[in-house]
Amino acid sequence: MSDPAIAVRHVVRRFGDTAVLDDVSFDVAVGEFVTITGPSGAGKSTLLHLLGALDRPDAGTITVCGQDVAHLDRLTRYRRSTVGLVFQLHDLIPRLTAEENVAMALFGTGLHRQDRRRRVAELLDQVGLAHRARSRPPTMSGGERQRVAIARALANRPPVLLADEPTGSLDDDSARSVLDLFADLQATSEVTVLAVSHDPRLNARADRSLVLAGGHLEPGGASS
């Protein structure tokens, strides 16, 4: 059996006296689509931040694609190449076009300008927004913006995609377009997807859902 894409072991993260994550352990296999659900304040986003190397655990280990995230020295390289992050509010730069927003993730990668342009076109095509390449985020729908954010997250071909409530602020139609995109990704690539979500529509499309409550993964909370 191959190593898991994500291995979380006895992770603890405290803020003051409160343990937001308390001895959390789980694995996500390569190519798997897993959601983490649970009530507000359960530690879902904190877990995602730890996986994205935006924060460090107080105890335990997190291994992503063989890299010990808690003790990484080269965070920039990890964030650029190992994980792709998608945020609930998409966080695109409004003054830049869709293609320029995607290209932001390719600065500093050593790719030649022409290759960057080609890669951006390929990504926008992949998320079904080739025709919106020159549009700016304020003129796009919520679903389109989120798909641009996903394209940006995939720009450096990361093996793991981490998404924080990717459909949380979207209407049904927009959410469906994003869900279809995740399904396409799974079908066409080996990308491992871990999404934090309250959205039952997203959970329904996932291979598994983990339930996080009170800083613990609920026993038997995983569902397929």
């Binding site: 994205g52 935006l54 920039t76 390289r77 964030r79 650029r80 190449s81 792709g84 992050l85 945020f87 966080d91 730069i93 932001m104 993730a105 600065f107 500093g108 990668t109 940006r152 997250a153 720009a155 450096n156």
Partner: peptide, 16 residues
Amino acid sequence: IREFGVLRSIGWSRRR
């Protein structure tokens, strides 16, 4: 500030 945070989270180095 938020924009800089996003840039750092998508792999921009401090130097950049």
